[in-house]
Nucleic acid binder design. Structure first.
Lengths: 229, 229
DNA sequence: CTCAACCGAGAGCACTGCTCTCCCAACCAG
DNA sequence: CTGGTTGGGAGAGCAGTGCTCTCGGTTGAG
């Protein structure tokens, strides 16, 4: 990103990038579990121990890939959103949802890496949080926008969720009506349920017309928060 | 299940069960990826090669565990359902959903095994289908029952989903009104989105009051199919 | 120009899934 | 009761893994 700071440093960033690229290739081809440091090193013409100068462990490489995947997904969603920025909130909502699904179908193993079961004993470091939040923030923005232009009719807020809803809006969704907070978070999770089931084969012989089915489901998901079609 | 058919056959079923038990222990402790055939054999006092007489590969052992996990989850859901069999469909719906969540929280690694990202290159054999279908059939039964007693108000059916809905009801949900088919399947997937997000840490610092949040979400999920509270 | 930091190479350790061969014990037919 | 067949445990071995450590050569800062 900066002015070249010496051959050494530049080589380091280049090699780091090359490692990630090769790792991403293997990830896309065979999935996270088959990603092998030795194979990455081999394909890069280096010896496996040299790779540890760049990533102290396999988990650190995976973490880097996870952040990249979150960013790639977030960018795809944001791009799709910009293309319909002038439309109604309901249209923008489904556009973002369909972008998530599209990205997932195009990057199944990367999707599995970030939204599938966490790799054994692996705990995502805090570093991943900002990248992971991008899609969520985008959805919050759509719903808040609907609220601001008076196009939001959220369902009533159950009393036992009032405190939770207040905390949610204060923490990460300022400007959102209390009634929309929990339904929005739930819809966010449910979106990934739909995508995951399709991607991981749970819809095999159950859902055939995948696209219309998904469009219908996320439209109703938007309605469940109060976005009217 | 039968009359003892000789020491040989009995020993075989006993050892097979012992292997599965030990494997399940390791699965619960460390997750699927760390399940090691050699470690299982070691803890059972046998040599690793002997284990291949019972399970031809690691994947076959995993498949057996997957089927058991589906059955365990299905049994938990059915038990929970029976306990409220006399209640309204809406109550039974949330009871089944909460049973799924409860089982998942109690068996995180087994849940990850069946609903997380499929293990690398692993494809579930047809054998798993009946066990996997139990929860789905239970939910179908609840909604059909609501329909039969006139307590179901499904949303309108979009034209582009009519053929799909006809196929769905014909294939696995006879007696269900066309309008309910797609919303039900979607709700089924969305339920696992909610559970998965909680289980895999996506709700960390996002949802604090997990139980009321979940109860509210699945109640609205039921309403989205037409079950009135 | 010197010296520390950097980093690639290679050997090695402990582990994995899986195969193959050997050999004994259980079983069934005659 | 016996003899051949089969089931299954033991052990060695192969190819692969993540990771560590040591040895040198190169780079770049003081």
């Amino acid at each position: 990103m900066n002015i070249p700071q010496g051959a050494r440093a530049r080589a380091r960033t280049e090699i780091t990038a090359a490692i990630k690229d090769e790792a991403r290739r293997q990830l896309a081809a065979d999935g996270a579990a088959k990603l092998s440091l030795r194979a990455v090193a081999r394909n890069l013409g280096m010896v496996s121990s040299a790779l540890y100068r760049y990533f102290p462990s396999r988990d650190d490489l995976l973490t880097a890939l996870i952040i990249d995947a979150y960013d790639s997904l977030g960018a795809a969603a944001e791009t799709a959103h910009e293309a319909v920025a002038d439309e109604s909130p309901a249209v923008r909502w489904t556009a973002v949802c369909e972008a998530v699904r599209g990205w997932a179908l195009g990057h199944p193993h990367e999707y599995a890496l970030i939204y599938g079961s966490p790799v054994p004993g692996y705990v995502a470091p805090q570093t991943t949080v900002p990248a992971a939040a991008r899609v969520g923030l985008l959805l919050i923005g759509v719903v808040r926008d609907a609220h601001e232009r008076g196009a939001l009719n959220p369902p009533p807020l159950p009393g036992e969720l009032r405190a939770e809803a207040e905390r949610m809006t204060a923490d990460f969704a300022p400007g959102l009506p209390l009634e929309a907070a929990a339904p929005l978070v739930a819809a966010w999770a449910q979106l990934y349920g739909l995508v995951g089931f399709e991607l991981f084969g749970q819809f095999h012989r159950v859902v055939e017309a995948r696209e219309p089915f998904f469009r219908d489901a996320v439209t109703r998901l938007g309605q469940s928060i109060g976005l009217r079609a």
